[in-house]
Design a protein around this nucleic acid. Sequence first.
DNA 1: GGAAGACGTGGGAAAAAGTGGTAGAAAATG
DNA 2: CATTTTCTACCACTTTTTCCCACGTCTTCC
Lengths: 142, 142
Amino acid sequence: MMFFGEFEYKLDEKGRLPLPPRFRRYLKDGVVLIPGPEKCITVYPLAEWKKVADTLTTGSLAPSKMRTLNRALFATAFHMVIDSAGRISLPAPLRDFAGIYDEAIVAGVNKNMELWSPDEWAVEKASSQVQAWQIIESLEQK
Amino acid sequence: MMFFGEFEYKLDEKGRLPLPPRFRRYLKDGVVLIPGPEKCITVYPLAEWKKVADTLTTGSLAPSKMRTLNRALFATAFHMVIDSAGRISLPAPLRDFAGIYDEAIVAGVNKNMELWSPDEWAVEKASSQVQAWQIIESLEQK
DNA sequence: GGAAGACGTGGGAAAAAGTGGTAGAAAATG
DNA sequence: CATTTTCTACCACTTTTTCCCACGTCTTCC
């Protein structure tokens, strides 16, 4: 499954966020939410997250590094299930981390999704588009 | 398939745009719309876009660069299917980006198509024609 | 030149989606 | 242990979107 597209939704007063209808059939087992490398929430389908976690934790790392990695991967992760209306409730710690309050952008990014505050997303989107076409042009020249 | 030619259509009040009849048989799987490098919407047949995306995402880039690229390639892309009248509906974010409202130019550009507002297209067309002959002459000198 | 088919354009109906609310269950606290 | 509060799952309503149909015009072919 490839996730793509950009969708904007309101959160209700309980912190619930709809996911795009076209994604829902691939998220029956729920999703895993973790803080992203940027100021966003990274969303994996459960199966995909298991693959990522496996890949990372089978690497040969020093025990202390491995403990750190495990804490970051698992302790900050939330397994959320989609309700009958296609929504997940965003845990407060993650909302604060990403600065998401009234509304959020759901962005499909190939194997996973990202949740952004509209303001942060506007900035990130603009800069990524400029960079992307530069990369594309450099590849087309080959 | 090589797309060429220039076509002008009206959008209806629901944001739907017809695609040229001679293109339709090559677009059965739908099209992928992304913001163009200029102020236009770039349209790929699904298969063609997958090739581009594969090429780009299999390259060896630093993880942060790869995330940026993925955001530009996937998050701003929309997969649209042609309806029984040969139309696609243009997502609002892309319409705003390209300044397309009442009518649009569909331009065939080799492997893909581009959607322009008539005003922007007139400017781009004039300048690209002048530049094209200069480019061709510079190539012939080699 | 006429007729038939295709195309552009608009509208309408049905289905889906966004959003808010309510009730039940679980948990926490006194 | 009981009561209150919070969270979750389910339900319902309104808006939006999507799919399908129909009409008028243009092109093409006979």
